[in-house]
Design a protein around this nucleic acid. Structure first.
Length: 924
RNA sequence: GCCCGGGUGGCGGAAUUGGUAGACGCAGCAGACUCAAAAUCUGCCGUUCGCAAGGAUGUGCUGGUUCGAUUCCAGUCCCGGGCACCA
């Protein structure tokens, strides 16, 4: 009986499906454990060998927890709305619903092939109306809420209306318009439209006319994180600013809580750091300066600074070119220069502005700000290095402390005031906070760090400034001018957006057969005349929600996926609670993770769920890179020369499909048949072989280095594939794929099989009692597998299995007492072969529900140790000494040792260092 | 430029608390079995000197701390990732 993995794996996969072995119940006496994978977007290309890395890791962990007695939720689903399907529809005319369905079927087939323990009865698809009904419903909760800064949480909008009726907005600053102020009487006096406009400026989901990243080529608006260096992340198309009516999520109100929440979760430091950077919290002050200008129309300007301690070092002001005060303060003399500069700024695309960060440009307005402390007149400039959207759009420039300000001052010959004495060398700015202030009036002699608060206190006392926290993060754009996404449950009447009644959900995505943009650049839905008019009157929102809408809450739906009364029953969300382990790639570091953390916090604030951080622990899997192969064609010929000989010729390096190469050796016949132009190719060989070049690159179709898991599973089996992916290295790390290396793991499984089964004799396991040596091997392995699995060190766990099997082979061990527990250990890594052998051993029930073996220290206790002995720190020999031996006894034994004697050359050792159970070092 | 990771054999990687560097596997070399091949098994396998015994050297580089450093500290170079006029 040989190890027929193909037959075994197919049979057990079928059996597990039929018996519902992976069904999970929401009712259980066992402790719960929730293991989640970032669900995939089902692309047309299917899975390559890099995709399942994280899925295998989470699957092993989920199975491990099940063996350890947990009720484990381990679901899978599909992020099935999104751009690529629509792009594909544009190109081929096939409806996204059709291609998506097809792709999902393919994905599921590929996933099942690898033997994952997903409870498919809980599958979710974001494009399913039964699912997106609740995406729309949550959107309505966001729409119906505002963030109460005093209670630090989301509250219903009608609470806010109540407050307005009593006291206006005097104690609740408007996040959408900071200048807006009204009292109760004024509120009652506003007409409904005005009231709705004001409420919109508070809502957590709100619409506004905003500058958005418009990508003409993709015909859509992109989120900030989808724009890289001024071009679209996908496709690299140019992106420009465009004013459009958009939906946004007021994530900025949650900036602080999103920041604080990071303290409670177990994410990698780099992941947390990325989120912190994205949020970009800074503390400082807003300072109002009096303005002296010809027209006298502007009395004050407001700047934001993190360094109020440098108030006496301010040599000029810079205002963003877009700032509204620019035209009001520009002097007659400077008018031409300013308008020339504004024209220049306008002519530059976002892309250029980002690309040329080094060049210094700007223009003087002719106006001055007055330093409130010493009355100095400070020239006001405009320059594109100050951004309209951050802080107040105006800065106070301190050239001795800020490098950009310094460069600007040098470039325009603005005199520089030094307030930090020797700390400033005149060559470059010094941003220190530790220097002693000079030339700073009442701050002289103070350390800058300490002066910050002194100045803010003074500003507040004088009534010309205040402490201010700023965030780099912007509110999240939530509209896409696209078809294949969730429709908004919103109807406009008289220009006012109204939420649809819950009873009207879901707003189903209507069928279309063309995908071109609407008349005003809105989504294709705008073209559906009979859909766009809502039944009760009014116009529907024609845009759709972005990709992250559905993925912001899917982990909750898995808990109760068929519920038609709620997104999930509170009992279910309370039972499953947080995701205990979330595995996925780093590419979602800021986008998805931040948005889903936001949604969770809002649902928590509104009382729908009992926890406010969705993911307790996050593990980021690394990428599996492709290992590309190259052939070398002699220039302008059809001759190919083996890699070792290319120095002798002028060659072009050409990618060759990895499937045509065994290790490095090219399969010449297959190569010739692969393409017509290679049919007549000639080869210059070395040692009778054609050796290819190799390089590690990203796995991609264009590089001909994509390896399909189906092929690997067909050749070696799912168990081998799973273990090999883990064996490659630490999950978090990126590493190249090497098909050749898989044979080692495959050999291991065959060896493992042969511990139990002989090809001719069949099962050869005995019921004899195990020897101490065998038990030692077993328990060392139990300990190692348990510890390594628990800390996600799957590669070393696979090694431990190999070591164990090698040792049992040496011991010729065939005993059930040893082999059966070992089988259970292997179950989470190689479930199929484990189940097969489990049954062969005559066990009832499935190995999936076996109990994880208990490690017992007593089998590992040793009485002596082969101590490594070093002379002056260099390892020279080993001496076997009893573990009971104490220092004096050990010293005696060591000094008497022949090899130690030789190194001592008759001298007495200066010192003998003895670490019990570890090592001995003789110092001469 | 700033912020995170990371540099260990031909390759993927191991060394969990400062204590035998290179576990495990791939590739390679030698051999056994076989008519042959596959499969399987055995041995060798960082570099270097040496017939060997045994030395020397070795975890990017330069120093430091220590009886002892891949591990800790300082500096430096390289690679990967993220952010980038954020006041």
């Amino acid at each position: 009986m040989e190890y027929n993995f193909r037959e075994i794996e197919k049979r057990w996969q079928q059996q597990w499906r039929d018996s519902g072995a992976y069904r999970v119940s929401n009712e259980s006496d066992k402790p719960k454990f929730y293991v989640l994978d970032m669900f995939p977007y089902p692309s047309g290309a299917g899975l390559h060998v890099g995709h399942p890395l994280g899925y295998i890791a989470s699957d092993i962990y989920a199975r491990f927890k099940r063996l350890k007695g947990y009720n484990v939720l381990h679901p899978m689903g599909f992020d099935s709305f999104g751009l690529p399907a629509e792009q594909y529809a544009l190109e081929t005319g096939q409806h996204p619903a059709v291609t998506t369905e097809k792709n999902i079927a393919r994905y599921k087939e590929q996933l099942d092939n690898i033997g994952f323990c997903y409870d498919w009865s809980r599958e979710v698809r974001t494009s399913d109306p039964k699912y997106y009904k609740w995406t729309q419903w949550i959107f309505l909760q966001l729409f119906d809420s505002w963030y109460n800064r005093k209670s630090q949480k989301a509250e219903r909008i009608n609470v806010l209306e109540g407050i307005f009726e009593k006291e206006g907005n005097v104690t609740n600053e408007c996040p959408g318009d900071r200048k807006l102020q009204f009292i109760a009487e004024e509120w009652s006096g506003f007409d409904n439209q005005r009231q709705q406009e004001i409420l919109m400026d508070y809502r957590l989901a709100f619409s506004a006319f905003g500058e958005v990243n418009w990508c003409e080529a993709l015909g859509t608006v992109l989120a900030n994180d989808e724009v890289v260096n001024g071009v679209s992340e996908r496709g690299g198309h140019p992106v420009v600013k465009k004013k459009m009516r958009q939906w946004y999520l007021r994530i900025t109100e949650y900036a602080d809580r999103l920041l604080q929440g990071l303290e409670q979760v177990d994410f990698s430091d780099s992941m947390k750091e990325m989120q912190r950077n994205w949020i970009g919290k800074s503390q400082g002050a807003e300072v109002r300066f009096k303005v002296k200008s010809e027209k006298g129309e502007v009395e004050q300007m407001v700047v934001y600074t993190t360094r109020p301690d440098t108030m006496f070092g301010v040599d000029f002001m810079v205002v963003a070119p877009e700032h509204e005060m620019v035209s009001d303060i520009t002097s007659f003399q400077q008018k031409d220069e300013i308008s020339k500069y504004l024209e220049y700024v306008k002519s530059r695309s976002e892309r250029e502005r980002l690309a040329e960060v080094k060049s210094i440009t700007g223009a003087f307005t002719g106006a001055y700000a007055i330093n409130p402390f010493d009355g100095r007149e400070i020239p006001i400039w405009i320059s594109e290095y100050v951004l309209a959207g951050y802080g107040t759009g105006a800065i106070m420039a301190v050239p001795c402390g800020d490098q950009r300000d310094f460069a600007f001052a040098k470039h325009f010959n603005i005199p520089i005031t030094n307030i930090i004495g020797e700390a400033f060398n005149g060559e470059e700015a010094n941003p220190t906070k530790d220097a002693i202030l000079q030339n700073s009036d009442f701050l002289d002699g103070m350390v800058m760090r300490d002066a910050i608060n002194v100045v803010i206190d003074k500003l507040e006392e004088m009534g010309i400034g205040k402490r201010q926290v700023n965030y780099r993060m912007r509110d999240a754009g939530f509209s896409r001018q696209r078809y294949w996404g969730e429709p908004f449950p919103i109807v406009y009447k008289g220009g006012v957006a109204f939420a649809l009644d819950e009873g009207h959900l879901p707003v189903e995505l209507p069928y279309v057969d063309t995908y071109s943009a609407g008349p005003e650049g809105e989504g294709p839905l705008a073209n559906l005349a009979d859909w766009i008019i809502a039944p009760g009157g009014g116009t529907r929102e024609a845009n759709t929600m972005p990709g992250y809408a559905g993925s912001s809450w899917y982990f909750l739906r898995y808990m109760d996926p068929q519920n038609e009364q709620a997104f999930a029953d509170r009992k279910a969300t309370d039972y499953w609670n947080q995701v205990d382990l979330y595995i996925g790639g780093t590419e979602h570091a800021v986008g998805h993770l931040l948005y889903s953390r936001l949604w969770t916090k809002v649902l928590f604030d509104l009382g729908y769920i009992g926890h406010e951080e969705p993911y307790k622990k996050l593990v980021n899997q690394g990428m599996i890179q492709g290992s590309s192969r190259f052939v070398y064609r002699i220039k302008s010929s059809n001759q190919f020369v083996s890699a070792g000989l290319i120095d002798q010729y002028e060659t072009d390096k050409v990618h060759v499909h990895v499937g045509l190469v065994d290790g490095l050796e090219l399969d010449i016949e297959s190569f010739k048949n692969s393409r017509p132009e290679y049919e007549k190719a000639e080869f210059i060989l070395e040692d009778g072989k054609y050796v290819c070049g190799a390089e590690v690159e990203k796995m991609s179709k264009s590089k001909y280095n994509v390896v399909n898991p189906d092929e690997i599973v067909e050749r070696y089996g799912a168990d081998t594939f799973r273990m090999y992916e883990m064996f490659l290295g630490p999950v978090e790390q990126s590493k190249p794929w090497d098909t050749k290396g898989i044979e080692g793991v495959h050999r291991f499984l065959r060896k493992f099989w042969r511990l139990f089964v002989d090809e001719t004799k069949g099962l050869i396991v005995t019921n004899d009692a195990a020897t101490p040596a065998e038990l030692k091997v077993l328990h060392r392995t139990i300990k190692k597998i348990e510890e390594d699995t628990e800390r996600f060190s799957f590669n070393t766990a696979v090694s431990a299995f190999m070591v164990c099997v090698n040792e049992l082979n040496d011991l010729k061990s065939r005993k059930k007492e040893v082999l059966q527990p070992l089988l259970i250990l292997l179950t989470s890594y190689a479930p199929h072969v484990s189940e097969e052998l489990w049954k062969l051993l005559g066990n009832e029930g499935s190995v999936l529900d076996a109990a994880f073996p208990k490690f017992e220290e007593k089998y590992l206790v040793e009485s002596s140790k082969e101590y490594p002995v070093s002379i002056n720190g260099k390892h020279r020999t080993n001496i076997n000494i009893s573990l009971d031996a104490a220092q004096p006894e050990v010293e005696q034994i060591v000094v008497a040792n022949e090899i130690v004697q030789k190194w001592l050359e008759g001298k007495a050792p200066k010192k003998i260092i003895f670490v019990k159970g570890r090592m001995i070092n003789v110092v001469i």
